[in-house]
Amino acid sequence: MDFFHHTFSDVYARKNNWLTRIDVRVKLFYVISLLAINLWAKNIFIPLLFLSISFIVLFSIRTPLFAILRSMLIPISFAILILIVKGLHEGEKEWLSLSIVGYKMTFREEGLRSGLHTCSKVLGGISLVITFSFTTTISRLCAGLKWFYVPNTMIELLAFMYRYIFLLFDEVSTMWTAQKSRLGHASWGKMIKSSGVLCGLLIMRAFDRAERTYEAMYVRGYDGGSILTVNLSPWRKEDYASFIGMVFVAPMLVYTGNIYVW
């Protein structure tokens, strides 16, 4: 649970810097088009370019390297797995052969190239997503999604869930620690049963809290209508400049991404 507490935080998105000040719609345009270009790319240079630019941009707003690497830990392990699996599975030309615990493993050149390509796409894509999430708060994201005609009900649920996840996390962490200190996790079997009880309590508390929240909303005039109140301000000069910059840069990235290197 510690992992989620450390990673699952919008602390960087709440800071005031040049990236958090950019309009969420511009950032959404950027992230969606760059992700598409990243997928489309036929060489590893475009994804690696996205990875490097994301790192530079995140360093420019003083995001700690450790925070970036912590977020990328799981995708990196997946990327390595893909590289190895493809290296072992695809192609004919033998590149490297080794024996691990008696099993002969042969890495093939074509497979490693293809694996490296996918691996770079994973790293490029995930770095773009991380850059977006490190610079955008959930309330701005909701406002941006509303502008993109995502259904109100879905955005309301997103806002609700996000708001209460942290609160429930704290409650669960307290109960989890209490269970652990009272030998509730002494054996594997006990731990499963304790998890069941903990989750049951979580559902019961969530149900009670939902009733209390509804009462509070009802008092404030909620009758089942829309609850979204965040409105976006008009674009500033910088936002227009960023958007126009994207319009010019995108075709160049598409062109460069289309060049076959191997």
Partner: peptide, 22 residues
Amino acid sequence: PSYLPLVGMLGAAVFVFSCFPI
């Protein structure tokens, strides 16, 4: 009208449950 907070809250609870380390 109480259905939205209910779904949101239970959704959050299920999300937290899905983060339980087993």
